[in-house]
Design a protein around this nucleic acid. Structure first.
Lengths: 160, 160
DNA sequence: ACGGTATTGTCAAGTCACCTGACGAATCAC
DNA sequence: GTGATTCGTCAGGTGACTTGACAATACCGT
């Protein structure tokens, strides 16, 4: 039995809507990334943790800075940091200059996880390139970035 | 030529991770879709409602069928249906054959919203095509679909 | 006709990824 | 030095899901 719906009087059933297509692409990529991270011993890493791994500075960053860069609220990011701290990927150190602030820093384990995640994502992209064409995957990346930039420019101007 | 960064081992910031890229593409598309639906008088439509609009049959569908097609649990889908019912997009009618089941059917308003959503998404894609190249957008779509199929084939066999 | 099993949809409760509002502590601006 | 601002946390809420339990109904073999 086919899992396809296909009985709707409309012809283009195979035309999967754009948001669904993007979501599926994200989901399969993330599933593979997390599966392989887990495989390598980096357990408990979830989607939202990327906000830290992606934006943290080598010498550590303040929570507020991380929140700003990731676009999350500082409360949300604080929770993510607590979670990562519990798993041993980051640590909170008091800022010697500003006693209100704490500096969030990757532990050794955190740095290794960061490197592993980058490597796995590159590997996934390379495998796609091998099977579906290097120029086609590269083109997809570029067009996606342009699409995002284009739509943000269209929607953004209202934002102050 | 363009501002592209070669992968020379330099940790250039412009290499946005794939999951983030897909998520951003989804977000800007969905923002535009919902903004324009709202503009046309179709209010209260949210992301999860697509599970109904995408998979419902013209003559109506059972909740269980919709859940199966969308991949959601029937509880989750039931909640979505209740929400859409409250906004007047769908209605629950008892199945005359099977008294356990209820048939979920689009109202006139629901059908108009469905048509509008399809039209808006086509329009968004066409505008991208005009500004960024028809073949490039078409290519992105095809490659994305292949990527999803490829990854699902890779991940799928181990499941179940 | 009857008892066992499978199916339909709903209720309850929990998880994850966010959000806003309120707040004490520390720093900055004048 | 007093007031305003900034830093991170606590409390509580929402949206989009999940699993488990359940009554009502339908199906099936005897």
């Amino acid at each position: 039995m086919t899992t396809r719906a296909g009985r709707q009087g409309n012809q283009n059933v195979s035309e999967i809507p754009l948001p669904a297509l993007f979501t599926q692409a994200k989901d399969v990529t993330l599933a593979e990334l997390h599966r392989r991270l887990d495989e390598e011993g980096f357990e408990g890493i979830r989607y939202s943790h990327g906000a830290v791994f992606r934006f943290i500075d080598a010498e550590g960053s303040r929570l507020t800075v991380l929140a700003g860069r990731s676009g999350l609220s500082k409360q949300a990011l604080g929770e993510v940091v607590t979670e990562l701290e519990r798993h041993g990927y980051v640590e909170r150190a008091p800022d010697p200059v500003d006693h209100r602030a704490k500096i969030i820093r990757l532990t050794e384990r955190g740095k290794k996880a960061q490197v592993a995640a980058t490597r796995i994502l590159e590997d996934i992209e390379q495998r796609w390139a091998q099977h579906l064409g290097r120029d086609r995957i590269g083109g997809m990346r570029i067009v996606l970035e342009e699409v995002v930039r284009f739509e943000k420019a269209r929607q953004g101007p209202s934002r102050c």
